[in-house]
């Protein structure tokens, strides 16, 4: 009796069936299969193990594996739901699903809140907001005085922290976003609607018919 490698045995750890992922996200089965093509590419760019490592995400975002960025680090941490240092396929699809144009706005608002809640305390705190402004200024080589930055952070807090307890909770954040909807503009990737056009190779290998 020989040893036969089935298609399933070649699937990386964390692989989940497209039908399951399509049922839980705004993607169709075909789109999940197209995302698998993208995932395979990203997850083999440095270490070919079928998992996206932080350096691989950095390489894809910046064309540079060593380029660090506070927000890219936060994105990685949020995609890495199991917190095991890598992004698995299921985590990748579920997280990208939040950025789909058809995903619920509530999910986008909650994701952005978690992105900005740097220390995961359940609140966006004054120090965290200042740290994020400093990080993006550093990134863009812009120089602003500390006083000026604190004025911006104070003003934002006076608008968003309606309870006045020095921190922004999810409820206050939802209210603030409803008044400033442009704040979650970066939580939608229109490109995700055309994902099957970008990665069409799934068409010849697809095993499952879309139900839609």
């Amino acid at each position: 009796m020989g040893c036969v490698l089935t298609k399933k045995s070649r699937r990386p750890p964390g692989y989940e069936e497209p039908t399951v992922l399509a049922a839980e996200t705004p993607f169709t089965v075909s789109e999940v299969e197209a995302l698998y093509e993208l995932f395979k590419k990203l997850s083999s760019s440095i270490i070919d193990d079928g998992l996206i490592h932080k350096e691989e995400l950095q390489l894809a975002l910046f064309r540079n594996r060593n380029r660090r960025n506070l927000f890219a680090d936060r994105i990685f941490d949020l995609f890495d739901v199991k917190r095991n240092g890598v992004i698995e396929f299921g985590e990748f699809v579920r997280s990208l699903g939040i950025f789909h144009p058809n995903a619920p706005v509530e999910d986008k608002i909650a994701f952005a809140f978690r992105l900005y809640d740097l220390r995961q305390t359940g609140f966006i705190e004054w120090d965290e907001l200042k740290e994020m402004v400093l990080a993006l200024l550093h990134e863009s080589d812009l120089v602003l005085s500390d006083d000026f930055i604190e004025t911006i952070v104070n003003k934002t807090f006076s608008d968003a922290d309606t309870k006045g307890d020095g921190k922004i909770d999810l409820e206050e954040w939802k209210e603030f976003v409803s008044k400033n909807p442009s704040l979650i503009k970066n939580m939608t990737l229109p490109y995700l609607k055309d994902i099957t056009l970008a990665f069409p190779s799934f068409v010849i290998s697809t095993e499952v018919e879309d139900s839609e």
């Binding site: 910046f62 960025n69 402004v133 993006l136 911006i152 003003k155 970066n186």
Partner: peptide, 25 residues
Amino acid sequence: KPVSMNAFELISRAQGFSLENLFEK
């Protein structure tokens, strides 16, 4: 109008990358 600037607006506009880059070939 610096004082009317919203820190989150600043962050969301200039976070330094776009996830769209993931789809570049």
